[in-house]
Structure formats: structure tokens, C-alpha cells
Amino acid sequence: MRDRQVARSTRRAREFEAFVAGAGGRLLHAATLLTAEAPDDNPRARRLLTLALAHTYARWDRLRGEDPYDCARQYLAGRFARATWHQYRVLGGARPDPRSPLAALAPQERLILVLRLYEGVAEQQTAALLGLPAERVHTLCDRATATLLHPARPAAPRAVGTKTAPS
């Protein structure tokens, strides 16, 4: 009996290690995009990843045919959504790193864009995961895409000493 438990625990640990080796990098990249941190300095993304992996490991034996990557991604997205709501509404929010490609986006736009475009999650699934109408997810994804493709240009500086013509 004891030998079976040890063997099962060892097998579980090996399976989970293989999962993390295969999916950890992609999940970390997704978390880094969500938090809009620099890829080389991403403590919030690493914390999100650690929490998602811990949650997935705790559910490992109960997954029963579910995709562990999907489980980890769902937890990562949900945790990010709850954390950003708390940070931005209560604490004033964390500033995105300007080196991040998604720094110009609001947290909800980043979340939807990462799920839809980077992770390839369907619009209906994204809406269900976030508790939003599919139309809202579509609108936010379009807005985020437009913001990234056509960033606002800074106003041109006025030349010093030039006069404007009277109207």
C-alpha cells in the first residue's frame, strides 16, 4: 500500500515536471504580456505563474482528461483579472513598463488581447471566462488591436520664436 502511494506521488511529480518544462515558458510569456512588465524584469508575472502552477498541481489528480495547460491559463487569467481590479480600483494600480509591447493598453484590453490573439482562445470562451458579453469582448479586442496597430502620436513640439498668423 505504502509503495503504491510513493509510486503514484513520484509519477505525479514527474508528469507535472514534464508539463512545467513544456508549458512554463509560454505561460510565463503570457503572464508577462498581461502584467506589461519588461521580459527581463517581471516579478508580478512570475508570481502569477507560480500561483497558476501551484493551483494546477493541487488539481493534478482531479484533471481527469482536462488539459492542464487550459487549467493553468484559466487560473492565470482569472487571477490577473481579480488582481488588476483590486489594484486599479483600490490601490491606484501598478504602472506598466514602457518597454512592454502592450504597455499602452488598459489591463482588461491586455487580458482579452492575450487570450484571443496570443493564446488563441475563442471569443465565446473568453467571454465566459471573464463573465462578459461576447460583444464586449469583441469590442475590447478590436480597440486593443487598433491601439497597437495605430498608436497615438505625440504632439509635435512648437518651434520656439515662431509667430502664428492672426485670424
Rank of each mutant, 00 (worst) to 15 (best):
1 M>N: 08
2 R>S: 09
5 Q>R: 10
5 Q>F: 11
6 V>W: 07
6 V>F: 05
8 R>G: 01
8 R>S: 10
9 S>E: 15
9 S>G: 15
11 R>E: 13
12 R>F: 02
12 R>K: 15
12 R>V: 09
16 F>G: 02
17 E>G: 08
19 F>E: 07
20 V>E: 13
21 A>W: 03
26 R>V: 12
26 R>D: 14
27 L>Y: 02
28 L>M: 05
29 H>V: 07
34 L>Y: 02
35 T>K: 11
39 P>R: 02
41 D>Q: 13
44 R>H: 13
45 A>I: 04
48 L>F: 10
50 T>M: 06
50 T>N: 08
51 L>C: 03
51 L>P: 00
53 L>F: 00
54 A>S: 10
55 H>W: 07
59 R>T: 01
59 R>P: 00
60 W>S: 01
68 P>C: 04
70 D>R: 14
71 C>G: 00
71 C>D: 03
71 C>A: 10
73 R>Y: 14
73 R>G: 00
75 Y>T: 03
79 R>S: 07
79 R>W: 03
80 F>C: 05
80 F>D: 09
81 A>Q: 10
82 R>A: 15
84 T>A: 14
86 H>Q: 14
87 Q>E: 15
89 R>G: 04
90 V>S: 13
91 L>Q: 15
91 L>N: 13
92 G>M: 08
94 A>H: 14
96 P>Y: 07
97 D>M: 09
97 D>L: 10
99 R>Q: 14
100 S>T: 03
101 P>V: 11
102 L>Q: 09
103 A>G: 03
107 P>E: 12
107 P>K: 02
108 Q>E: 15
110 R>I: 04
114 V>A: 04
117 L>V: 13
117 L>K: 11
118 Y>K: 06
118 Y>C: 09
119 E>R: 09
124 Q>P: 04
125 Q>F: 06
129 L>R: 13
130 L>F: 03
131 G>D: 13
131 G>Q: 04
133 P>E: 14
134 A>W: 02
139 T>D: 14
140 L>Q: 09
143 R>M: 10
144 A>Y: 03
147 T>G: 02
148 L>K: 02
148 L>N: 04
148 L>T: 04
151 P>V: 07
153 R>K: 09
154 P>H: 11
157 P>N: 06
164 T>G: 07
166 P>G: 02
166 P>T: 02
